[in-house]
């Protein structure tokens, strides 16, 4: 950690970056994101298992762009977010600095996006037993039970859009729910509106989600959104026969290929 701090300090002092985005101690034993623009505050930086926020989410914000060049303390999930955003043209990889240490305790040195992808490949994430067991439980339900289950979960939604704010891939300036010409998705927090919102959110992330789980952790009413994402990711890998690695830089739902043998295309 000291080396990460030192590097962050050097970057700020040499004015190579104008802001370091990382984690600091929050209240009640939580960790929270911090923006450090002055190197004398560098000691606030921490990195541990409590640091779950996907910091890639800040990289697309105009406000952050305005501060200047960014160095970001990156967890594996943040790295995935960075790869995804770069592949969707949201920034150029070379325009950001990545801070952190690998499993061997060495400072990250990524010369290119491909190196980040390689690194991610070598460190596959395992989903927690709780996540998997909930997923399998929902899968084993009948269609009606499943419908009931999600209706019940969604009924608590207060449309605070914390999930959207926490998600690195929800970077649209104008989210579909905010577009009212026409208003395809109802913004009203009632049964239909909530259903519409959660279906469109899941669909817009299907094939793009990096499965960091930030949405579910951000949800104040504990809707297990990560399970929806996880299920879609599984379905996509299965139906399109592709790897997670491929998913990171590609969007299978948008590939037009005349050689596609799926007969629904003809």
């Amino acid at each position: 950690m000291d080396r990460v701090k030192q590097k962050a300090r050097d970057l700020l002092d040499s004015n190579k970056v104008q802001v370091v985005i990382g984690y600091e101690e929050g209240t009640d034993g939580t960790a929270r994101p911090v923006f450090i623009m002055d190197s004398k505050n560098i000691d606030k930086l921490i990195f541990n298992d409590r640091c779950y926020h996907n910091l890639a989410v800040y990289l697309t914000k105009v406000e952050v762009e305005k501060i200047g060049r960014v160095a970001v303390e990156a967890s594996l999930n943040t790295l995935k977010g960075i790869v995804k955003l770069a592949s969707e043209g949201q920034f150029v990889f070379e325009d950001i600095d990545i801070l952190g240490v690998n499993r061997n305790g060495e400072l990250y040195e990524f010369a290119s996006l491909d190196e980040v992808i390689d690194y991610i490949d070598q460190h596959p994430v395992e989903y927690s037993p709780e996540e998997i067991s909930l997923l399998r439980k929902i899968e084993s339900m009948t269609r009606e039970e499943r419908w009931e289950y999600w209706q019940e979960e969604f009924s608590r939604c207060i449309r605070c859009y914390a999930c959207r704010a926490a998600c690195p891939n929800c970077y649209c300036d104008a989210c579909i729910v905010d577009i009212n010409q026409p208003q395809w998705i109802s913004p009203t927090p009632d049964a239909l509106g909530n259903l519409e919102w959660h279906i469109i959110r899941a669909m817009h992330l299907a094939g793009r989600c990096v499965n960091c789980g930030a949405c579910a952790k951000a949800c104040p009413v504990d809707i297990p959104l990560n399970i929806l994402n996880l299920k879609l990711a599984e379905e996509i890998s299965k139906n399109f026969g592709i790897s997670e690695e491929f998913l990171l830089t590609n969007y299978p739902l948008a590939i037009y290929d005349p050689n596609d043998k799926e007969n629904f295309i003809k």
Partner: peptide, 17 residues
């Protein structure tokens, strides 16, 4: 300051036949 609601993800590029 939006100019367009397009965010330039260009995922549409690969879907266009």
């Amino acid at each position: 300051p939006l100019y367009s609601t397009c965010v330039g993800c260009f995922l549409c590029q690969s879907v266009c036949p």
